[in-house]
Amino acid sequence: MQFSAAQQSYQHSGIESNNIDNVDSMAAMAHRGKSLPGIPSFDSHSSKRQWQLEHMAGAFRVFARNGYAEGISGHISVRDPEFENRFWINPLGVHFGMLKASDMICVTLNGDVVAGNMAGSINAAGFQIHSAVHRSRKDVHAICHTHSIHGRAWSAFGKPLEMINQDVCYFYKAHSVYSDYGGIANESSEGQRIAESLADGKAVILLNHGLLTVGETVDEAAFLFCLMERSCQVQLLADRTEFEKKNVSEKEAAYNFKMASTPETLFAEFQPDYQYEEYLSGNTFKS
C-alpha cells in the first residue's frame, strides 16, 4: 500500500482544547508531593557544556544497555551552548558502552573539527544528518539516531506509528516518515531530505534505516528514542494478532501529548535511566 505525503507526515499543529492549556504538566506528575526537578540553569557556558557532555555520555550508556549499538553506526549530537554553529558528536568506532564525556568531538556545521577529542574521527553519514537537522532546526539542541532492532523492523513498512496505547501518544502528530531512502547518508542531500521530513516534529521514522529523535536536551531526545524503539516493538507485536486494535481517541491522544511531551517532562522521564547509569558506573562516564 502506498501512502501520500499527508498520510505519512504526522506533525504537531497545536492543541485547541482549552481545558488543558493552563495545566502545569510537571506539577501534575506528583500527587501531593514536590514537583520533579526540571532542566537546570548554569552560570557559564563551560559548566553547561560539561553537563551536556556528561548527559550525552550517560545516554550512550543507556543505549548500550538497551542493545542499540550496531557496528560503527549510530550517533548522538548536542549543540554547543556557546557557539550555535557547532555541535558535539561521538567518535567513530567506539562502543556506546565505553564512551565518556571527554571522548566527544566538537565540529562546526561546515565540518571543521574545532574542539574536544581531536584524535578521533566522526561518522561521515552521521555528520551529514546531524548538521542538516541542527542547521534547519534552531530549537533542536540534541539529536539521537541508531540502528535499533525494532525501529529498523518497523521502518520497512514506511508507516507512522498508530496511537494504540498511552505511551505512544507522546508522538501524537509529532512524528513523520521519511520515505525516500537514498542509501547511506554520505551526501549532504540525503541529510537535508531527512531534515525536511522531520520538519517541526519530535521524531522521524527513516524508511529501511531506523529512527531519529530530537529534543531541547539530550535527555529529551534520548528518552524519546528509547520510547519510540519500544513503541515500534509494541506495534509489531500488536500487528501479529488477528484481533482488531482499538486506537486511543483523538481527544485523549491530544491530552496525553499535551501532558507528557514538554521538554521539561521528557527531561524528567529520562532521569531514572541516567541515574541508574551513574549508579552502575560510579560516574566514570563523566570524566
Rank of each mutant, 00 (worst) to 15 (best):
P272Q: 06
F257G: 00
K245V: 06
T262G: 04
A253T: 04
A254K: 02
Q271I: 10
L237Y: 11
D239Q: 13
F270M: 15
E250N: 10
E278G: 12
K251E: 13
S249D: 01
Y276D: 12
F270P: 03
N256M: 08
R240Y: 03
A253Q: 06
E252Q: 08
D239E: 14
Y274I: 09
K245T: 07
Y279M: 15
F270K: 03
T265W: 00
F257Q: 02
E269N: 13
A268P: 04
A260N: 15
K258M: 14
D239G: 11
M259T: 02
F243V: 13
Y276A: 10
Y276K: 13
A238T: 14
Q275E: 12
P272N: 09
E244C: 06
K251N: 10
P263R: 01
K245H: 07
E269M: 14
P263M: 01
A253P: 06
A260S: 13
R240M: 10
T262A: 05
Y274D: 02
F270L: 10
R240S: 10
Y276F: 14
T265F: 00
M259R: 09
Q271C: 05
A238H: 06
S261N: 04
Y274Q: 09
E264D: 06
L266S: 02
K251L: 12
P263C: 05
Y274N: 06
F270H: 04
R240N: 09
E242R: 11
M259D: 01
A238K: 07
Q235L: 02
T241F: 03
Y276Q: 13
E244H: 07
A238F: 03
N247D: 10
N256P: 02
Y279I: 10
F267R: 00
E277I: 15
E252C: 05
A254R: 03
P272H: 01
L237W: 07
L236R: 10
S249V: 13
Q235A: 12
P272E: 11
Y276C: 08
N256I: 12
T265C: 03
E244D: 13
N247A: 07
L266E: 02
Q271D: 05
N247H: 08
T265S: 06
K245Y: 02
E264G: 01
N247E: 07
S261V: 01
Y274G: 00
L237I: 11
E278S: 08
Y276L: 15
E277F: 06
Y276I: 08
E250C: 05
K251H: 05
Y279P: 02
Q275K: 15
F270E: 00
K258I: 02
L266R: 04
L237M: 14
T241G: 11
E277Q: 15
K246G: 01
N256C: 08
Y255M: 11
E244Q: 15
K258F: 12
R240H: 05
F257M: 03
L237K: 13
F257D: 00
A268R: 07
A253V: 00
E242Y: 05
T241D: 03
S261Y: 05
K246S: 09
A268I: 02
A268E: 06
Y276E: 15
Y255T: 13
K246V: 15
T241L: 08
Q275A: 12
T241E: 01
Y276H: 12
Y279S: 12
M259H: 04
Y279Q: 12
A253Y: 01
K258D: 01
N247P: 00
A253K: 05
P272G: 09
S261R: 05
K245F: 03
E269F: 14
V248R: 01
Q275R: 15
